[in-house]
Design a binder for these strands. Structure first.
Length: 285
DNA sequence: ACGAGCGCCTGTCGGC
DNA sequence: TGCCGACAGGCGCTCG
């Protein structure tokens, strides 16, 4: 499920509780059980199940697409990748088919890492930076100024879409929100980052922030069989709208494949600058 | 430094 | 109905 708005929604739910879900803040870990070996990146299962016990969950946050649980002594980090989810539920609940890591808490609660596709990972580390250290800036951080963003963009000789997906460039964007942000900014996904003007960079930053805030306001997007109650999927402007009319100009939304991933854009609202024309057009649907 | 392709996994959907 | 390929919100790894 997870891009920045979805991870933010999950973190908020675990922290505050509500909608029938209990808060895990302040709960003490009583035991842990790993059900799928590879869901734990580090340390070993034996060390994890021993070391995590008796630590309290003191803070629940997010960095990029990572969920960050600050415990008494360590950090418990999760990356949900494609299908992961973190669920707080009563210990009396039956173990769901795709639960990969079970963490029993006091007061009869359980924190479950559920992940159908098994791409997600958990880490228990004393220093969060060992996992989060290479992440780029948070897009919603006000310290990221248009000038600073422009400097980052022009330092790279890359196409915009792959660059926005690069978590060391900017932390939190995935396939949905990068397509949506590029549309709002009126920039072609294959446009070159180092050719952007300051005004274009500022517009892109504002578009990224607007898209992410919209996503958070709608509690994220729920598509396919994964559902968390968010409804941002009803407000997509280009993502998965191939062949449908652009909401601004009526042109048909196009799709192209970039590194095995779908990219959606409006061929009229998002023109490729002439400087990019030497590039092969790619396979367009 | 960068792009392209593949592997990791399970599930859903549309076409035949 | 069953089978098969395409596709899916990510990312680390190779290889040019």
């Amino acid at each position: 499920m997870p891009e920045l708005p979805e991870v933010e929604t999950i973190a908020n739910g675990l922290r505050q509780g509500g909608f029938g879900q209990p808060s895990i803040l302040g709960r003490r870990i009583e035991r842990a059980h790993l059900l799928w070996r590879r869901s734990l990146a580090s340390p070993s299962p034996e060390e994890f199940e021993r070391r995590v016990v008796n630590q309290a969950i003191e803070e629940v946050g997010r960095r990029g697409k990572f969920l960050v649980l600050r415990l008494s002594r360590d950090y418990l980090l999760f990356h949900l990748r494609m299908s992961g989810d973190l669920i707080a539920e009563p210990v009396s609940t039956a173990i769901a088919p795709h639960h990969r890591l079970i963490i029993d808490l006091d007061e009869g609660l359980r924190l479950a890492f559920n992940d159908a596709r098994k791409f997600g990972r958990a880490w228990l580390v004393d220093d969060a930076a060992t996992v989060l250290g290479s992440l780029g800036p948070e897009p919603l951080d006000p310290n990221l100024t248009p000038a600073a963003f422009h400097a980052r963009l022009t330092a790279r000789r890359r196409q915009l879409k792959p660059l926005l997906l690069d978590q060391s460039f900017l932390a939190g964007l995935g396939n949905i929100y990068s397509d949506e942000a590029l549309f709002l900014a009126g920039l072609h996904p294959l446009a070159l980052a180092h050719k952007l003007t300051l005004a274009q960079s500022e517009r892109l930053l504002n578009s990224i922030r607007q898209t992410l805030q919209e996503g958070i306001r709608h509690h994220g997007a729920s598509i396919d069989w994964v559902y968390r109650g968010g409804d941002f999927q009803n407000h997509f402007r280009v993502y998965r709208r191939t062949g449908e009319p652009c909401r601004v100009c009526g042109s048909l939304i196009q799709r192209l494949r970039l590194n095995q991933r779908s990219t959606h854009f409006c061929p009229v609202c998002q023109q490729l600058p002439s400087g990019n024309m030497s590039l092969p057009p790619g396979e367009v649907t």
